[in-house]
Write a protein that binds this DNA or RNA. Structure first.
Length: 730
DNA sequence: CTCTAAGAGATTTTT
DNA sequence: TCTCTTAGAG
């Protein structure tokens, strides 16, 4: 074995070095925000390879997002020469997809199975409910979708679910069973199915299981705190008795419980794999001291942590600025003005983020930024492969590979309009149901009698005939042109140019597409699967698994707007954390859930640790939400930040003054001219001996005194008379 | 088929 | 308040 080259381990701190050179045993690495997590993970792989402890063949490296997988791949390639084809590095779903392509027969799937994205899944569910004659008022399609996905992510099939006495649950379970049968019949798998089917296939086929258990000696997992129960079971099954699992994660950054993430997997891993204690990475290379102090202080309010405290060699830096704005509009204007000032001072707008708890908050911010002419970019819109025109084009491509894809057929049988209205489609569906065939077969049967359906059948047959000659790019071009989509969009009034551009872009994407994964390579053992449509199949799978960027990178510098969730894993020179109000952040919903507050606090921790140099916190005393005015108190999370690192800005002329420390001064007059309420006013913050601090949300003047409605946050909303209640203005 | 109007629902989201 | 979806009329 050659000694590892010094350059590989150079520059690692002692913690990182310990993690990277961990003996070939399982480990749980607790990696704090900004502690060099990705570096440790990739260097560990490089080190294992370089020291000859394992071949590329013996490594399985799993991430959650395509972005993270690519990042690792790039970094790894820079460290050691790796054959990307033999390395199993990818997302959970990407790897399961590869596995199912390779072993589709064992998994009982057709070789050309297709992947349903969430929207496709929902469409199929709606169709299913209709066919079962279940009104959407009885079972909402979205809740059924949530139910099915949750069950699959818990590893449960309809057959093993206990209906119990509740007829609604029984209904859901029946729908789940029918849904699975329908998917199987149509040869489609949803995201959760990719995982579950892989897991079951491994479980049921001992030879296959042993093959992979013997093969993967080192299993490395990124963002381990985000794994759900099924993913954990899958990892455990693959690891078997012999593999070393190297899991990197941060329990304090677990913010995806609502979609099935199970932090308990971290302690479970320690138990199942005999790990005595986690390896901790606590040295932070991102944020200045005060920012870290705030982050540590906030997260310390959570119990049941694995325990970790970030430290830095950096200076304290600037204090955290906190603004209590009168309302959401002034908050937004403050952010806008401040961002512009920062830009003038030489900060890069791309390195400044505006974060919020919920997407609805972005509107006010957008308006203010637009008003001030500050370029911004929002993360969270439709992604490339989710756009209507792209999904239409993809539906034609799917019919090209497999005309029995009912979802695809229904999507485009009348787009562009070709005289096959809802009535004709219903007839078609009835015919298919009667004959027990796909819609395509029913359409072919009806074609001799109905000219319009015959035309559509001819179109699809013609598309199908392209396969076997020409390139992927040619096929995509043909599908777009022959479908008539470009004319359809050209003839539509309104903005169609963007859609036409996107269709053009789809052709470019096909041109540039190279299937990266070996899943589509023809294996010696299944040579009969040399399906000539494989490039298209790979292209379609890629479109479903990797829906593309939320926003084109763009070259003009722009402020970055996103939810706190979307900001996880990113970092910025300056961060504006807005809407820090009780009920918003922490969200009202979370307070009702068990451990909901702890998760919100982790979210706050994530938000704080995004900032390198400067952090702004802001709240609005009055905010319009869903058409109603809400009066909110400052978030409890702000109070959890030590006063010593917090600098409260005065709302008036915050910009003009904040260069010098200001005395604590709060806004003490309501934004709207309010009637005198015995010296109080709506919107004011007041303190009561028993109820604590609250905000006046309503009041009636009674001459000498006033009757005030006060929101005391967690202590409830009280009506108090100023004659009796001892209230002091804060 | 397309347009309009009315109604419901409105954390967080990757694959 | 706003946005998305769907039902019904033209």
């Amino acid at each position: 074995m050659t000694a590892s080259s010094p350059s590989l381990l150079q520059g690692l701190n002692p913690e990182q070095l310990a993690a990277v050179t961990w003996p070939p045993q399982s480990a749980l690495v607790l990696a704090g925000a900004g502690s060099g997590k990705t570096r440790v993970l990739t260097t560990r792989i490089a080190w294992l390879l370089q020291t000859g402890q394992v071949g590329v063949h013996g490594i399985l490296a799993v991430t959650f997002t395509n972005k993270a997988a690519k990042e690792m791949q790039t970094r790894l390639a820079a460290m050691v020469p790796v054959n990307v084809r033999t390395l199993w590095l990818g997302t959970f779903h990407g790897l399961c997809h590869r596995f199912l392509r390779l072993h589709h027969r064992d998994a009982n799937l057709p070789s050309a199975f297709q992947i349903l994205d969430s929207a496709d899944q929902l469409a199929l569910i709606k169709r299913l409910l209709k066919s079962l004659n279940i009104a959407e008022e009885i079972i909402a399609p979205r809740s059924l979708q949530g139910f099915i996905n949750a069950q699959k992510e818990a590893g449960l099939r309809a057959g093993v679910l206990d209906a119990g006495p509740d007829p609604y649950s029984r209904r859901l379970i029946e729908c789940y069973a029918t849904y699975d049968a329908l998917c199987q019949q149509e040869g489609v798998v949803d995201f959760a199915e990719l995982m579950l089917r892989s897991y079951e296939t491994l479980q049921q086929h001992a030879v296959l299981r042993q093959h992979y258990q013997n093969r993967f000696r080192h299993i490395l997992v990124d963002e381990f705190q985000d794994t759900n129960k099924l993913q954990y079971a899958w990892l455990k099954l693959l690891a078997g008795d012999g593999a070393a699992v190297f899991a990197v994660g941060d329990d304090d950054q677990s913010i995806y419980r609502f979609r099935g993430a199970h932090v308990g997997n971290m302690t479970q891993l320690m138990r199942d794999f005999g790990i005595d204690a986690p390896v901790k990475l606590e040295q932070n290379y991102r944020s200045d001291g005060h920012i870290l102090t705030a982050a540590n202080a906030v997260i310390a309010h959570n119990s049941e942590r694995l325990g970790k405290n970030l430290r830095t060699d950096a200076a304290d830096g600037e204090k955290i600025r906190f603004l209590q704005a009168a309302d959401d509009e002034s908050e937004a204007l403050f952010v806008s003005d401040e961002a512009r000032s920062l830009e003038r001072e030489g900060w890069d707008l791309r390195q400044i983020a505006v974060l919020y708890r919920s997407n609805a908050q972005s509107r006010v911010l957008e308006q203010a930024l637009f008003q001030r002419g500050i370029p911004y970019k929002i993360y969270g819109g439709l992604r490339f492969y989710e756009r209507q025109e792209i999904k239409h084009a993809l539906a034609y491509l799917r019919l090209m590979v497999n005309p029995h894809d009912d979802n695809a057929l229904l999507r485009v049988i009348n787009v562009p309009a070709r005289g096959i209205g809802s009535r004709s489609v219903e007839n078609l569906q009835a015919a298919a149901a009667d004959a027990g065939t796909s819609l395509w077969q029913a359409a072919c049967a009806l074609a001799p009698k109905q000219a319009k359906i015959a035309a559509f059948v001819r179109l699809v047959e013609n598309l199908h005939s392209h396969i076997g000659h020409g390139s992927l790019e040619d096929w995509v071009k043909s599908a777009i042109v022959e479908s008539g989509l470009p004319d359809y969009y050209r003839n539509q009034k309104g903005e169609h140019q963007e859609r036409l551009d996107n269709l053009e872009e789809l052709v470019h994407a096909a041109q540039a597409f190279k299937p990266q994964e070996s899943a589509f390579e023809v294996l010696p053992e299944n040579t009969d699967d040399s399906n000539p449509a494989f490039p298209l199949l790979a292209f379609l799978s890629n479109a479903a698994l990797e829906a593309g960027e939320h926003q084109a990178a763009g070259d003009t510098p722009a402020l970055q707007l996103m939810t706190v969730h979307a900001a996880k894993g990113l970092e910025f020179d300056a961060v504006f954390l807005t809407g820090l109000e009780e009920g918003l952040f922490p969200s009202e919903y979370s307070l009702a859930e068990r451990d909901g507050l702890a998760e919100e606090r982790r979210l706050m921790y994530v938000a704080i640790t995004r900032a390198r140099k400067r952090l702004y916190l802001s709240m609005a005393q009055q905010r319009r939400l869903h058409g109603q005015t809400h009066f909110g108190l400052a978030s409890r999370f702000v109070d959890e930040i030590p006063a010593a690192v917090l600098h409260r800005l005065s709302p008036q002329g915050a910009r003009a003054h904040y260069a010098e420390p200001l005395p604590v001064r709060r806004h003490d007059s309501p934004p709207a001219a309010a009637p005198q309420l015995a010296g109080f006013a709506i919107g004011q913050n007041v303190r009561h001996d028993k109820f604590g601090t609250g905000v006046i949300i309503d009041g009636t003047d009674k001459g000498e005194s006033a009757r005030l409605t006060i929101n005391f946050g967690k202590n409830g909303i009280k009506e108090l008379d100023t004659r009796f209640a001892k209230l002091t203005v804060v």
